[in-house]
Amino acid sequence: MEKIGLYLGCNIPFKAPDIEQSFRKVFPALGVELTDLPGAGCCPAWGTAPSFDLNTWCAVSGRNITIAEELGVDVMTGCNSCFGILSEAKHFMEKPDRKKAVNAILGQVGREFKGTSDIYHASNILHEVIGVEKIKESLKYQLEGLKIAVQPGCHILWPSDVMKVKEKNSFYPTHLRDLCEALGAEAPEYSRLEACCGMGGMRSTDVEKSLGLFTEKLRSIKEELDPDMIVTTCSSCFLQFDMSQQILKERGVIDYEIPVFYYTQLLALAMGFDPKEVAAISQTRRDGVIAEIQSEKRKINEEEPHGV
């Protein structure tokens, strides 16, 4: 069994622990053992150390990575920002000078960054290590007839030179579409597929500007696809889509609401896991679509049931 270090970050364990729970259910069932990285902290978020000092950024990131190095495992993140931060920090530390300077800091807390663990995103592991075929085989419910608008998010795409797993064309990403199609659903392209959702530093700096960007993206989704749900592999995008639709609705900007899932939540549902554990926290109403997914008619006839 493949073994990988589960790096939680902040958003997932504290704001959307059902996503964490979906990881803990889905990955072992697909043959990937998750190891906790005890004592790992913030990646550190873009607005913290990276905005103050490059070496401190690398030291805090490096500290997280050393926990995985000590366990001899690679790192898997669920949050795009954590993925971007850790990947870039590792890239910076490939320069011997930087590595030396950072290790001088880490030495004071008894750690040394070696560079032996690679950084992966959960969607990298799903797409490259597990693969769509294995996902297809593991399903208990199939999603045929459902239409998904995917949101891969930014930090998993760029800068591609610091990443282990790359999209064939980072401006027209397909990995998440492949993963959704593996569930039997339809996941068409739409024009603003790669566009930013507006979460992150922008939202904390200026909510209105963030919402402007978000509205444009949401319109492209609604007008071009009118999907049954939005699926993302970024916890920040998840929060933006989940929270901000409510705001737009209250303001009368939109008169609809599209359910939002983190991909592994949807996968967990399709694998038959309990929605109360894996898809229990959201502002958008998802009950309808969850019931639809786990309905009798969608059940795949197989001799031995999966999961639970």
Partner: peptide
């Protein structure tokens, strides 16, 4: 969760790094 939030040693490490920065 099994992160620094419930781990005094981990917090101390992070604090040490930040204090010196």
């Amino acid at each position: 969760p099994p992160t620094s939030v419930g781990d005094a040693k981990a917090q101390k490490e992070i604090q040490t790094i930040l204090e010196q920065s």
